[in-house]
Design a protein around this nucleic acid. Sequence first.
DNA 1: GCATATTCACGCGTTTTCGCATGTCCTTGT
DNA 2: ACAAGGACATGCGAAAACGCGTGAATATGC
Lengths: 305, 305
Amino acid sequence: MRKRVNMHSLCANMHAMEPLWDDLHTVLCLVRRGSLAGAAAELGVNYTTVARRISRVEASLNVALFDRLRDGYQPTEAGQSVAAHAAKMEQDANALIRQLQGQDDSLSGPLTITAPQLLIAHGLAPVIDSFCATYPEVQLHVRATNDLLDLNKREADLAIRISREPGDTLTGLRLAEQRSASFADATWAARIASNPETLIDWVVYAAYKDVPRNVDPAYPNHRIRMTFDDMVAIRGAALAGLGVARMPMFLGQASGLVQVPVLPPQPYADIWVVGHPDVWPSAKVKAFRDILVPHFRKTKGRFLH
Amino acid sequence: MRKRVNMHSLCANMHAMEPLWDDLHTVLCLVRRGSLAGAAAELGVNYTTVARRISRVEASLNVALFDRLRDGYQPTEAGQSVAAHAAKMEQDANALIRQLQGQDDSLSGPLTITAPQLLIAHGLAPVIDSFCATYPEVQLHVRATNDLLDLNKREADLAIRISREPGDTLTGLRLAEQRSASFADATWAARIASNPETLIDWVVYAAYKDVPRNVDPAYPNHRIRMTFDDMVAIRGAALAGLGVARMPMFLGQASGLVQVPVLPPQPYADIWVVGHPDVWPSAKVKAFRDILVPHFRKTKGRFLH
DNA sequence: GCATATTCACGCGTTTTCGCATGTCCTTGT
DNA sequence: ACAAGGACATGCGAAAACGCGTGAATATGC
């Protein structure tokens, strides 16, 4: 015992101790998040543990990796260098897990999918329900977000996306073609029907900032009433009678809005299911697709008219 | 407390727990070494710890990584896959440490050099002595081996090598040109001098398996008496009077052997000091070079005649 | 054929690590 | 100006990880 302890401390003095890989991971998280608490949350440990690990790795490398500022840990140049290398290590670790996951033929355990909020609410819910009933052993985690999660980083195993193309390196299937049209509440619909030349208030995406192209020339008067950066808000505005909005067919109809003829139906971004090629063949992912794809095949009409 | 434990066990059941990077490292070592004891030695821990970590990572990945055989742990296919990815992670970790090391401007702490045994014994010893005297804070570690250590894997910080070229990606300086000649003990020298046509017994490298080319035609009769795979052994054989050996000038002369004219002096592999470009600029490595290079500049004659 | 050397499995006691609670400093907002 | 919240340091007690010893099974050598 005595001997061992002495050897250990000798080692620490003589050789620059090999840093523990977990500590490098901790450095990476701390650089990313900027605070002990943030890194701790990501790692699932207490923030004091993060602080201790940082001290340990700095001692073993004999380099200051962070400046302790009042408002967080600021990485030094060396700290950023460590984080950069650790990020590469993380890529390999992720690739490893993805690969093992792809060979997993069990129908139990965790499965994470992601989809836009509105698509889950109006069309995906039955799929999720059916999947959970069929595979009760699978712990399904649904991430309802409009953000494009990084499937390389395993933020999700499968993503349902509304886009013109599948991802670059991702495997994918097109679930349904979509079309969009103009929708409004009943009051607006009646007003437009009675007088096509009435001034039409548009509620549009902030990104577009303009009245949709291809509006029917029979309705010549338009203005932008307001812009939003979120489709849920646009739908809410339309439901509140604030104006006319362009939205995909399924959403306008499921929302109780009335389709108005101002904008004729026209192509919209399609619905895709995409996944990382490593994870794609796994049993759980395949099982989900086997419920998802037939369901969309049966209901594809909702997205066209 | 209660709460935390429950959360933890829940996590383990619901999500495939992220494997700890250290455990991946452990898998890598175990695949490389083949036994718990070997991996433990490499990691500097007890072998029971290795066994526990393997169990843990197998549980967290829910995959069998090794077959427990009586004569060691045999990696499964999944285990080899894990090891392959962990090897990539190790490369990044090594690159990181090399890079930090290269920026280290301290003249204390560990420094590892490697050189052929015979070169250390006959020529390098004064350099090492002088370096240790000048920089007592540096813990110099000398690895005397004919194996070419992998500087990418940080098996040494600096290598003195006898070769025709420096390494492919390594930085290097030529310390001295070398020439070789034939050497033998006094008895053989006398016999050859008295009768050039005597049958000459050669002691040669196993790799060559033949009498050296370019022998002087004045000495027509040769045979291979024995072969060795080690220069120390060859020198020993020559000293014991077993025959004539080709060896570099410095070695024959330092060994108390007599140069015989059978093989005229001719070019031999030169002496280089090489290092990884990342580590090359570090203060300790530079300090060693600054003693090493001038020493060889002064004594380069020993290697030519 | 028996002795020796490896190899791994298991249980115990200790060390190390960790989580939590408290205290301090600073920034932010009203 | 003062309260409120976030971020870090520190000390303490519990939990987890570890090292060590013992024992069994197998390969290796004389």
